[in-house]
Amino acid sequence: MIAVVGLIIGIILGVAFNISFPAKLSPYISVAIFACIDSIFGAVKATLKKDFRADIFISGFFGNAFLAAFMVYLGDRLGIPVYIAALIVFGQRIFNNFAGIRRLLMDRIKVHH
């Protein structure tokens, strides 16, 4: 539940304040956003499975974002577009978590009918 509230607050703040970043930071921001969305979807899935732990969520949320940004920085310094690989991996994890969430919700609906 805390993940959903945080997501809603983040969306509202993002829409309310027109924040722009330099184009040079785009790979970092995109990977960090994907890492955070991955953590949020993982938290929602864990909540539905009644296995949510706030410490795991918070450490994963910030840890994934910082690790991903560091990997992009390292790739940038080496001249390797690591952010593309990170986006692919996080994108796959987001879709897998979404599929798990969908299945859990469908199972709950099926049980109540």
Rank of each mutant, 00 (worst) to 15 (best):
45 K>C: 03
97 N>W: 01
52 F>N: 04
57 F>C: 02
44 V>T: 02
35 A>P: 07
1 M>L: 07
62 F>N: 02
30 S>E: 14
27 P>R: 02
62 F>Y: 12
43 A>P: 02
3 A>V: 04
39 S>C: 07
59 S>T: 14
74 L>F: 14
81 P>S: 05
80 I>P: 02
33 I>Y: 13
44 V>F: 03
112 H>K: 14
38 D>C: 12
58 I>Y: 06
78 L>N: 09
51 D>T: 10
50 K>E: 15
82 V>N: 07
84 I>F: 06
32 A>F: 00
59 S>I: 13
56 I>V: 14
31 V>M: 06
47 T>E: 15
86 A>C: 14
59 S>R: 10
66 F>H: 03
94 I>Q: 04
97 N>Y: 06
17 F>K: 07
40 I>L: 05
30 S>V: 08
20 S>Q: 13
37 I>N: 00
14 G>R: 08
90 F>Y: 15
35 A>R: 07
9 I>G: 00
94 I>C: 05
70 F>D: 10
32 A>L: 02
74 L>K: 11
63 G>M: 05
37 I>F: 07
81 P>L: 01
105 L>K: 13
23 A>N: 11
3 A>F: 01
101 I>T: 05
57 F>H: 03
79 G>T: 08
36 C>K: 15
27 P>E: 05
46 A>K: 13
38 D>Q: 10
9 I>Y: 13
